[in-house]
Write a protein that binds this DNA or RNA. Structure first.
Lengths: 202, 202
DNA sequence: CTAATCATGTAAGGCGTTACATGATTTT
DNA sequence: AAAATCATGTAACGCCTTACATGATTAG
C-alpha cells in the first residue's frame, strides 16, 4: 500500500501545521492547485489512508453538522516518509496539454478561427501572469524570497508560475501572428493536405 | 456520447492520412506524446467508439497474427467534427506537476538532497531542449515553418517544447542556486517551521 | 429569512495504467 | 534460433470528476 502523490501533497500541507479535511480542500486550490488539484471526494478517503498508514493522526471534536470535526497532524513517521519522498526524482506523469493537441492539427481548422483562439489564450495567460506577479510581490514584502522563510516554497512555485505564463503568452501571440501573415490560405486546408499527400504517393 | 480529447487527438492524426491502430500507438508517442499520451489499451476501444459514431471508417485486410488488420480513415462527418472542436477554448485539465508539489514542501527535506534533485532536473531539461532544437532544425530544412506546410503543426508544437524546456531549465538552476547560497540552514527545517508557527500563535 | 460557510462523508461512472493473451513476419 | 516488429484485443484496478446527502452556525 504505497502513498500516492496526492497523499504526499497533503502530508506536505499538514507538515506546515494541523488542519481539517475541509482546510485541505481550500489549500489544494491556491496556490498548490496551480500544480496539483483534488476534489474533496478524493481528500477524505486519502486522509483515512494516511491515518491508517500511521503518517497522520487526528483529534476529533464536535463540529457543525451531524459528524465530528477531525483535526489532522503529521506523525514522526509521516514527516520521515515525506523527507524521504521529496528528493526522489518525480515520476513522469502523462502530459495533458489540449492546446498543443489542437495546434498539432491546426491545418484541419479554419485559420481565422484558430487565430482568434490563440489571441484569447494569449490574453488569459497575460492576465494570470499579472495575477501571479502581484501575489509574488506580496510574498516578497514578507521576506518569503529567503530560503529559511516558512513560505519560501510558495515563493518558488509562484516564480515558476510567472515564468510559465509569460512563456506561454509569448508563444500564443507568435502563433496568432503566424496565422495572420503573409498570404492567407484561401483553399480548404484539409483538401490541400490531401492533395499534397496524393502528390507524394504518385 | 461525446468524444474525448483522446478521440479528437486520434481524429487529428487520421485527418493526415489513413492509419492502423498500431500506427496510432506509435504516433501518439512522438511528437504528440509530449503533450498527450495514451496506451494501446485505450486506443483500440477509442477507435471502436469513433467508428460507431461514424467519424471514421476502416478497411479490413488479413494481417499478421490471428486477427484482421484494420486501416482507419476519417469520414466527412469526422473532419467536420474535428474542424468544429479545434477552435473551441480548451477545457482546463487538472495540472500534474510533481516537481512543484515537492518544491512547495521543500522546507520539509534536506537542503543538500533537494539541491541535487534540482541540478539533475536542470540537466534533463537542458538535454530535452537540445533534442527538440535538433528536431526543429530538421523540420526547418523541409520548410515546415511555413503555415501551409503539412507539418507546420509539428513545427509549432516543437517550438513550444523548446521554450518550455529552456524556461524550466532556468528555473531549476535558479532553485539549486537558492539552496546553495548564503548561510545554509543547519537546524532541522521542520523543527524550525514549527518554532516559527508557535511563535506566531502566542 | 436566506445564503454562505463550516464540516464530513458516499456512489456512479469515465479515464488511464499495467498486465495478460495470441500469433505471423522480419531482422539479428 | 532468438528477438524484435507488426497487429489486435481483454481484464483488473486505481485515480479523478460529478453528483448526492446531511446539518449547524454565521453573515447579510
Amino acid at each position: 500500500m504505497s502513498i500516492s502523490v496526492l497523499g504526499y501533497t497533503m502530508l506536505g500541507l499538514l507538515a506546515r501545521g494541523p488542519h481539517t479535511g475541509y482546510d485541505l480542500v481550500r489549500l489544494l486550490r491556491r496556490p498548490i492547485g496551480y500544480y496539483w488539484t483534488a476534489q474533496q471526494s478524493q481528500i477524505y478517503p486519502e486522509l483515512g489512508r494516511l491515518a491508517q498508514a500511521g503518517l497522520v493522526v487526528f483529534e476529533a471534536a464536535s463540529g457543525p453538522g451531524p459528524r465530528e470535526k477531525k483535526t489532522y497532524a503529521t506523525t514522526a513517521e509521516g514527516r520521515a516518509a515525506l523527507a524521504t519522498w521529496l528528493p526522489l526524482p518525480p515520476g513522469s506523469h502523462a502530459p495533458r496539454d489540449e492546446l498543443m493537441v489542437k495546434t498539432f492539427a491546426v491545418a484541419a481548422a479554419d485559420a481565422d478561427q484558430m487565430r482568434a483562439l490563440y489571441l484569447t489564450m494569449s490574453r488569459e495567460h497575460a492576465q494570470r501572469a499579472e495575477d501571479f506577479e502581484r501575489q509574488q510581490a506580496e510574498l516578497d514584502e514578507t521576506g518569503a524570497h529567503a530560503l529559511d522563510h516558512p513560505r519560501f516554497g510558495n515563493y518558488a512555485t509562484l516564480r515558476m508560475g510567472v515564468a510559465y505564463e509569460r512563456m506561454r503568452q509569448e508563444w500564443c501571440t507568435w502563433m496568432a501572428a503566424q496565422l495572420t501573415t503573409p498570404a492567407r490560405r484561401r483553399q480548404d486546408p484539409l483538401d490541400h493536405e490531401l492533395t499534397v499527400a496524393k502528390r507524394r504517393r504518385s
